[in-house]
Nucleic acid binder design. Structure first.
Lengths: 334, 334
DNA sequence: GTGAAAGCGCTAACAG
DNA sequence: CTGTTAGCGCTTTCAC
């Protein structure tokens, strides 16, 4: 079977305490025995059990990462960024795709607790705040991506959605558009509402009166984006000349629906997305979009939660990152 | 602090053994005490520590999943399928994006061992077979996706790459193409070679002599697909009328490069991909491609490794799944 | 410098 | 049916 610390101690002719010390670099041991122990560990191909050491009160070096769907390119990219940053500090991640389903969410939370993760990063929608409160009580740090829970003591990393919406709106306005539609994700979400509000503000600032009929709710699927666009195209004369879709997938759905109707993008309809996922570069025309700094988001959220775990920080933080307009081919003058 | 089994036992007026039994449903306990213990656990919001129970020789209910890059849509979809299937049986996954970098791979393997995962699913390229051998010796089941290591005792789930290549070739041939180019991924990989071989065989069976100049190596990035296509287009007169790209990303790169040159797809150039990722539905024209059954791959590989862990299977298995041609808009008659 | 010993929270015989 | 007890592999005082 797998060698234990006892095997190493015995082979090296020392006590397990000594071995433990050389593993962790704690206490004081002579160079000679340290080297000897190291050699024996090498020979035995000894791998200290982190589950045993975790039981002794140390960290598990494991963090839970909940998100709606790992297969969604945006979240996959976020997950990758998180993974990389955590890995630098020796952390592994349990991925938990919840589909924004309360039942799955609860099951995953419960599992994460039982596995004694050192912290949880939440990028999924959260229904069960009772569970979160419990985690906080249990002293398990929580950090959220792209959503906040002001009532709870959690760290937050998000992009400035209002600004992003404003940038999107301004870009379209500068191109001469005045009939600007918005395909929102989900008006129950703050981030979605803020993007919409930002776009509206840009219009107001330009002296354009937003038309309520031009606001429609999509969701997160390609199909829902198509449908939203089809609805907008039904307006005929009142039809928009430009669309701000609140994520890239919706934007692509919108482009496809426009194409169905024989509307060329961008000459007959401009479309701008949000996120700047890999999809934006792949579609034709390439998608103009508001970029979220996904690497930075991953980095910051991991840094926050690790600080929290180390107790280096008592104050919860709220990090607001800046979105950035990336102009490609899907938007153009009226 | 977090309640332990002792807290529950005390509050319920029983021994920890009894509590342990109701948690695990082992041994025989009266309905009355069972209910009582359950109630107390509920009240205390007790969550049994899986790290402690793992130490006692049980499973960690954790599996490592190594892949080249979680941000790559193909692997993200695979990961999602794996996650879902595992979750049904109470397993969590550590995701390990190796970038096919031997150093990262080794670091992750080592970490997985220390964390005492119950098994490892490998979808990344593997350089360090020494590590794998060690795992096998340690009795840690290994299952591979899309690659095999015949020398080692591992389970394997893969798609029939030769058949996929053959299907791709046949489809193009049926459309009347005779000058068919292949953009391979990486000729060091068996799967890549098989796809190429399959396509060639289809050509041979149709009495077409493959032209070596039409075989080029791409990789896994959009850019490399573009470059490969540009190279092919340099052939001018000898230029292909159809391209089989060994993955969707390469195929999309090929389409973009063709467009750069003003070649319309599919009328002037047919392009077929491999994988059937979400990208295939998003690009315009929608990509004809050879579909890998990603859900099925995830399911099968998880089932295999779980069986292995439970010792229900002594014989290693090699599961060969069938690819399927999905015709969309990127291929057409010459 | 090094080691003995007491846990960490739980499981699994083995008694009763 | 229920409880006692001996570990699981490691960390951490506290002596020596």
């Amino acid at each position: 079977m797998k060698p234990t610390i006892y095997d190493v101690a015995q082979a090296a002719g020392v006590s397990i305490a000594t071995v433990s010390k050389v593993i962790n670099g704690t206490g004081r041991i002579s160079d000679k025995t340290r080297k000897n122990v190291r050699k024996v560990m090498e020979e035995l191909k000894y791998q200290p059990s982190m589950v045993a050491s975790a039981l002794t009160g140390k960290n598990t070096y494991t963090i839970g990462l909940t998100l709606p769907d790992l297969a969604n390119p945006f979240f996959a990219e976020i997950a990758r960024a998180v993974e990389d940053r955590g890995h630098e500090s020796g952390f592994n991640f349990f991925i938990c795709s919840t589909d924004n389903d309360p039942a799955k969410e609860e099951k995953y939370f419960s599992l994460l607790m039982k596995k004694r993760v050192d912290g949880v990063i939440i990028a999924s929608r959260t229904h069960n705040t009772a569970f979160l409160k419990k985690m906080i009580q249990m002293n398990i740090p929580i950090a959220m991506i792209a959503r906040e829970l002001p009532a709870l003591a959690v760290d937050t990393v998000m992009v400035d959605d209002f600004l992003g919406g404003y940038q999107a709106g301004s870009h379209l306005i500068e191109l001469g558009h005045r009939r600007i539609a918005v395909v929102a994700e989900d008006l129950n979400e703050m981030s979605s509402r803020e993007r919409l509000r930002g776009c509206r503000q840009a219009m107001l600032d330009a002296g354009i009166e937003p038309d309520e009929r031009l606001v429609t709710v999509g969701g997160f699927t390609l199909e829902s984006g198509k449908e939203a666009m089809r609805r907008l195209l039904l307006l005929d004369a009142a039809r928009p000349t430009a669309v701000f879709a609140c994520n890239d997938v919706l934007a692509i759905g919108a482009i496809q629906a426009a194409r169905e109707r024989g509307l060329h993008v961008p000459t007959m309809l401009s479309v701008i997305g949000f996120d700047n996922t890999i999809l934006a570069t792949i579609i034709d025309p390439p998608l103009t979009t508001i970029a979220q700094p996904m690497q930075e988001i991953g980095r910051r959220v991991v840094d926050l939660i690790i600080q929290e775990m180390r107790g280096e920080k008592t104050q919860k933080q709220r990090v607001l990152l800046l979105p950035e307009l990336v102009v490609r081919g899907s938007t153009g003058p009226v």
